[in-house]
Amino acid sequence: PDDEWKERLREAEEKNNWKLFEELARKAGVSEEKIEEWKRRWS
């Protein structure tokens, strides 16, 4: 299951679909801290 969400995150990233990325990350149990960090790195 871990690989599956990583794959989906990669797809979201490729499409630059931040909303989807964020949603998937939350569902995968990624901390808000980590998500914010990704946001900063991404923008």
Rank of each mutant, 00 (worst) to 15 (best):
K27M: 14
W5E: 04
E4T: 11
E33P: 03
E23D: 10
R40V: 08
A12S: 06
V30L: 11
E33G: 05
I35V: 02
E11G: 06
L24P: 00
K6H: 11
G29E: 01
E36W: 06
A12D: 04
L20Y: 09
P1W: 13
A12H: 07
W18E: 01
R41H: 13
E36T: 03
K39V: 03
A28K: 04
E36S: 06
E23C: 14
L9K: 03
K27E: 10
A25H: 01
A28V: 05
L9M: 13
E23T: 06
E22D: 03
E11D: 12
G29F: 01
R26K: 06
E22S: 04
L9Y: 08
E13D: 08
W38V: 09
E13S: 14
E32N: 06
E7D: 11
R8D: 04
R26H: 02
E37H: 03
R26S: 02
P1E: 13
W38I: 14
N16L: 09
K19I: 09
I35T: 00
R26Y: 02
E33S: 10
P1H: 12
K6F: 13
K27P: 00
E36M: 08
L9I: 08
K6G: 11
S31I: 02
R41I: 14
E23N: 04
E13P: 06
A28D: 01
I35E: 00
S31A: 05
E7N: 10
R10C: 15
N17Y: 07
E32D: 08
L20R: 08
E22I: 08
E11L: 10
N17H: 09
E14H: 14
F21P: 00
R10G: 05
W5M: 07
E4S: 11
W18F: 04
L24V: 08
F21D: 00
E33N: 05
K27R: 11
A12R: 03
W5G: 03
F21Q: 00
L9C: 15
L24C: 13
W18R: 01
N16Y: 10
V30F: 15
A28W: 09
V30Y: 15
E14K: 13
R10K: 12
R41P: 01
E11T: 08
A12P: 03
A25K: 00
V30N: 01
R41V: 10
E14A: 13
E23W: 13
K39D: 01
D3E: 12
R40Y: 06
E32L: 06
A28S: 06
E14W: 09
K15H: 11
K6D: 09
K19M: 10
E36G: 03
E32I: 05
R26W: 01
K27N: 08
K34S: 05
K15T: 14
R41E: 14
P1N: 11
K19D: 13
L9S: 04
N17T: 05
R8W: 07
E33A: 12
I35G: 00
S31Y: 00
W38Q: 03
A25G: 00
W42V: 04
E7Y: 03
E22L: 10
K15N: 14
F21W: 12
N16G: 14
K27L: 13
G29V: 00
E36D: 10
E14Y: 09
L24S: 03
V30T: 01
K39L: 10
E33K: 07
N16P: 04
R40W: 08
E33W: 04
K15D: 10
K27T: 05
R40N: 14
L24D: 02
E32H: 04
E32W: 08
W18C: 09
K39G: 02
E13G: 15
K34W: 14
E4W: 15
G29M: 02
N16K: 11
W38D: 02
V30Q: 01
G29I: 00
E13V: 15
E22H: 03
E23A: 07
E13Q: 15
K19S: 12
R10T: 06
L20A: 11
L9G: 03
S43Y: 14
A25D: 00
K19H: 13
E36L: 09
S43A: 13
A25V: 05
N17L: 14
K6N: 09
E32Q: 07
E11W: 10
R26M: 02
K34E: 13
W42P: 01
E4M: 10
W42T: 02
W38F: 11
K19Q: 12
D2K: 10
E11V: 05
E36H: 04
E37M: 03
D2C: 15
G29K: 01
A12Y: 11
W42Q: 03
G29N: 03
W42F: 12
E14Q: 12
W5S: 06
K34N: 06
P1V: 13
E11F: 06
L24K: 03
N17G: 08
W42C: 14
R8T: 09
E23Y: 09
R8S: 07
S31P: 13
I35Q: 00
E14C: 15
R40C: 14
R41K: 13
L20T: 08
R26F: 03
E37R: 02
A25I: 06
G29T: 00
N17K: 07
E32S: 07
K39S: 02
W18N: 01
W42I: 05
S31H: 02
W18Y: 03
W18M: 05
P1R: 11
E37W: 06
D3G: 09
L20K: 07
E7W: 05
W38L: 13
W38P: 00
F21I: 04
K6Y: 14
I35A: 00
L24A: 08
D3Q: 11
E7P: 06
K34F: 11
G29L: 01
S31N: 05
E33T: 06
G29S: 01
E14P: 04
R40G: 12
D2Y: 13
K27D: 04
E36V: 03
N17S: 08
W18A: 01
R26P: 00
D2L: 11
R40Q: 14
E11S: 08
R8F: 09
D3H: 09
K39N: 03
S43V: 13
E13N: 10
E23I: 07
K15G: 09
E33F: 03
K34D: 13
E22V: 10
S31D: 05
F21G: 00
S31R: 03
W42E: 01
K19T: 12
E22M: 06
K19C: 14
E7F: 03
N17E: 08
S31G: 04
E23H: 04
L20V: 11
R40T: 12
A28N: 06
K27Y: 05
R8M: 12
K6W: 15
E14M: 14
K6S: 12
L20N: 06
N16I: 07
W5N: 04
S31V: 02
E7T: 09
A12W: 07
K27G: 06
N17F: 14
D3R: 09
E11N: 07
D2G: 12
E7H: 08
E11A: 10
E14F: 14
K19V: 13
E22F: 10
D3T: 09
L9F: 13
W42M: 08
A28G: 05
S31T: 06
P1S: 12
N16V: 06
W18V: 02
R26A: 02
R26T: 02
K6E: 14
I35Y: 02
V30D: 00
E7L: 05
F21K: 01
K39F: 09
R10P: 03
A28Q: 05
P1T: 12
P1Y: 13
W42H: 05
L24I: 13
R40E: 15
W38C: 15
W38K: 03
E14L: 13
R41S: 12
E11P: 04
E4H: 13
R26G: 01
N17C: 15
K39I: 09
R10H: 10
E11Q: 11
N16A: 06
W18T: 02
N16H: 14
E22Y: 08
E37V: 02
N16S: 07
I35C: 01
V30H: 04
R41L: 15
F21L: 06
E22N: 01
V30W: 15
R41Q: 15
E4R: 10
L9Q: 03
K15L: 10
E33M: 04
K34P: 00
P1M: 13
F21R: 00
A28T: 02
E14N: 11
K15E: 10
E13L: 15
E37D: 09
W5L: 09
P1Q: 12
K34A: 11
V30E: 01
E4Y: 15
L9H: 04
N17D: 14
P1K: 10
A25M: 13
W38E: 07
D3F: 12
K15S: 12
E33I: 05
E36I: 04
N17R: 07
F21S: 00
K6M: 14
E11H: 08
L9N: 03
E4Q: 12
K34Q: 15
K6Q: 13
R8K: 11
W38Y: 10
E7K: 10
W42G: 04
L24F: 08
E7M: 06
W18G: 01
E4V: 11
E4L: 12
R26C: 04
G29P: 00
W42S: 02
R40D: 15
E32C: 12
E14T: 09
N17V: 06
K27A: 15
S31L: 03
